[in-house]
Amino acid sequence: MIGGYVARRILALIPTLFFASLIVFFTIRLIPGSVIDLMLSQNDGSASGLPRAQLEAALGLDQPIYIQYFRWLGSLLLHGNLGNSLWTGTPVMDEVVHRLPVTFELGAMALVISLSIGVPIGVYTALRQNTIGDYIFRTVSILALAIPGFWIGTLVAVLPALWWGWSPPISYVSLLQDPVAHLVQLLIPALILAMASSALIMRLTRTMMLEVLRQDYIRTAYAKGLPVRTIMARHALRNALIPVITLIGLLAPLLFGGTIIMEQIFAIPGMGLLLLEAVGNRDYPMITGVFLITGIAVIIINLLVDLSYGWFDPKVRTR
């Protein structure tokens, strides 16, 4: 039953992804300044010396755009090939697969941090509604939502250097080289990324807990003699977290947007940096590939979110 459901969901993704690829494929070519202009303006590049027409032909850009699209789509469907970078000639798929884990790691770290900050504080503020603690956390959460991440990110990157001559590590250390240094390096951007999302999670958890705590079944739990701790953990939190799970699905694209900026500020070679470079270079296949893979990742996360409802909310399971 659950297998059939997943299969149906995945089938339903195909048209979505098809349209997404179509839109990305066409719109990126609308960015002013084509890749050919860029290449011709750089005399030292690999393409130097070739006349414009030849360059276009070599890159396959002389064809009408819909032909280009179907070629791209054909090789994707038949060979799982996303094309090659216009500049370096490396397969887009290799590049993306190489970069995806870091971005995913950064996003996942931010999400874990947001949940482990947002949920407990949300519960705390609901239990202490309208006390000083509640008031302070609510105010802080508004601040966290209002302050842009890139601003904090820039400050964190620049101020310690000015004040103490210390700056966050700039040269990237991979997980295999030195796991600890790697995690420490990702921690600061992950914390900054988590700022806004933990505030959102906290506020939603608080609202939902207040709602759940008014329910009759909570009174039943008290009437059984259960201690508050058990009532929260077993009876309240699970019901209160159902909308929070939905929020996680919605946060996924937001966090990805955030990682692009953090990767740039903290020089982390993930999908975000790849995308920025690709856009700067008008590397069309690379841009399309990054968007497509990101889109698939976001959709998979949302699929997982939907599946987890079954665990949280039994009404969904039997449907």
């Binding site: 009759d216 079944y217 009174r219 039943t220 019901n239």
Partner: peptide, 11 residues
Amino acid sequence: FQEPMTSLNPS
């Protein structure tokens, strides 16, 4: 309690 529909925890 009076309300059997809401007095049991749905999850």
